[in-house]
Simulated scan of single mutants.
Amino acid sequence: MPAILGVDLGTKCGWAHLNTNSQGSAIISGVWDCSIRSGVDSPAIRFLKFEKNLDGVLSLSPDMVFYEIVRAHRGVKAAHMYGAFQQKLFERCDYFGVPYEGVSVQAIKKFATGKGNAPKEDVIAAVRVWGFHPKDDNEADAIALARLGWEQYGS
């Protein structure tokens, strides 16, 4: 049975690892805070934090990684940050030999709520109905990604 990793890229990065075996399935999830301290940390520290955390869950040997594709950003800085996190994800997945696939924001929302334009609160509520207690919308998105990935790849 395959293991799936869902990743919601960003400074507050949601992640969820879904593992299935003969006894059922289990998801472990959380949020990595990849922010930096202004005037103290170099800008690259956020990507080193992301890499360290990502390597930790990639060591759990997922068979596939699904990540959220964001096609529109609030600004230039957000777009640059997303691109850097995405590139780091590709690099580390390639290093570990784990295939990856992007899923649109709308597809994640539709899977979780039935509506591709649902607000973040609705995704959190849907994930809670599934029996999870996400800290925020980033973790909720990652859990939904892992479950969506399982339906596409694992079944």
Score class of each variant (00 low, 15 high):
Val57Ile: 12
Met64Gln: 14
Gln152Phe: 11
Ala72Thr: 13
Met64Phe: 10
Phe111Thr: 01
Thr11Glu: 08
Ala118Trp: 11
Gly114Ile: 08
Cys13Ser: 09
Asn138Trp: 06
Arg147Val: 03
Arg37Pro: 04
Gly39Ile: 02
Pro119Asn: 04
Ala44Gln: 14
Gly14Met: 08
Leu58His: 01
Ile28Met: 14
Ile108Lys: 00
Leu60Pro: 01
Ile69Asp: 14
Gly83Ser: 10
Phe85Met: 11
Gln23His: 14
Arg37Tyr: 02
Ile36Gly: 07
Ile143Gln: 01
Lys77Leu: 10
Ile28Glu: 15
Gln86Ala: 14
Arg74Gln: 06
Ala112Ile: 02
Gln152Ser: 10
Gln87Trp: 12
Gly14Pro: 02
Ala3Glu: 01
Phe85Glu: 08
Arg46Ile: 03
Cys93Ile: 06
Ile143Thr: 00
Val129Tyr: 03
Glu51Ala: 14
Val98Leu: 11
Gly14His: 07
Phe47Ile: 12
Lys120Phe: 02
Phe50Ser: 02
Asp136Ala: 05
Trp32Ile: 04
Leu9Gln: 06
Lys88Leu: 11
Gln106Thr: 14
Ala118Ile: 08
Arg128Thr: 14
Ala26Arg: 15
Trp150Val: 00
Cys93Ala: 14
Glu101Asn: 06
Lys110Gly: 00
Met81Gln: 13
Val31Gly: 08
His17Asp: 00
Asn117Leu: 06
